[in-house]
Design a protein around this nucleic acid. Structure first.
Lengths: 184, 184
DNA sequence: GAAGAATTTTGACAATAGTCAAAAAAGGAT
DNA sequence: ATCCTTTTTTGACTATTGTCAAAATTCTTC
């Protein structure tokens, strides 16, 4: 995480040691749940290796909303920007190494090192742009195109995520995805 | 705009007069273009009455990306969060009364009245949640459901926006929308 | 108010994606 | 290795949406 952050802002030795102090690295096994729907205490995660997914329930069914892989930040974004309770759960879909910072610690960091506010902005921006891109994709591309896009942009996902998770993410049924896959 | 802002943060007399000083109300006619793709100087708009649309070109075709109506903020959001050049254009689709604040003035406002940062956060949040909702809609609802949703949530849009604009916004073709409409 | 432009509707057809049900394959635990 | 569970694939059929072309309607402008 530090090397990623240092690509965003200048990292003074004091700031670096402060970030080290408030963050901790953890390793979670496959299927481990990091955040549950409705939870009020929030963390910002940075994926060092492995994969996380964000999901929630809709009409009894689990809907996978996003994936985060190596080098990406992940959090319940709605809670991140608004301080609301999380409406989605976050789960590791394979063994994952994470750096964790609590929202409280992050706020204190913003106060003591104002230049770190940029981190928050960059996360917001990245989240928003990804969402925008997905919306365009789904509005104007066929399921097949979206699937091939996903393979290109996140090849590693194909190993770790299940068909059902990928299908929900792409907004299609499992069966359709299975057929698209068989075609090649 | 002031009455909307006062619902978000306490509005001291000084802050109120400062906002009045840096913002100006303008009236633009139908089809007037407020922001062009690629522009570097940006404004935040607040719609007092009327309707704006954000759009851009993709493969020669104009794609309507969003609508903003009475009581909503509108801007090229990507530029708003990241300070990038605008990738979309903003146009009034009917006679529209707007309050305008430039990004520069807004930054100065943030500095002088830190409580106004909340405004930026609320705008970000609203934008993000709307986008998220749209993505869910389009992932799991049929064109018909999405159209009826839109009628419910923005009845006034049906008068001011053209069929093609609404169709692009919903991610369907004009013909399909026309047929959905005819069914009732 | 007529001519021309733009927008909307309709038709016929094709392609895409969904549904429900069952079979096949893969993964885990004992 | 075998049984059990979960995931993935396949089949048959249906529903939804897109495409291309033309007709009808509405909106502008002179």
């Amino acid at each position: 995480m530090l090397s990623y952050i240092s690509s965003l802002i200048a990292l003074s030795p004091e700031l670096e040691s402060e970030i080290k102090r408030i963050s901790k690295e953890i390793t979670v096994p496959k299927n481990h749940i990091l955040t549950k729907t409705g939870e009020r205490s929030h963390n910002l995660f940075f994926v060092e290796s492995g994969t996380l997914r964000g999901y929630y329930f809709q009409e009894e069914k689990e809907i996978t909303n996003w994936f985060a892989q190596e080098g990406e930040f992940a959090t319940c974004f709605y809670a991140f920007i608004g301080g609301h309770p999380s409406f989605e759960s976050i789960q590791a879909i394979e063994q994952t190494v994470l750096t964790v910072i609590s929202f409280e610690a992050l706020k204190t960091l913003y106060r003591n090192f104002p230049e770190t506010e940029r981190i928050g902005r960059v996360i917001t921006e990245a989240y928003y742009m990804k969402l925008e891109e997905r919306l365009l994709n789904i509005r104007f591309k066929t399921a097949k195109e979206r699937y091939h896009n996903l393979i290109e942009s996140r090849p590693a996902l194909m190993q770790s995520a299940s068909l059902g998770q990928i299908a929900a993410y792409l907004g299609i049924t499992q069966e359709t995805l299975s057929r698209i896959r068989a075609e090649l």
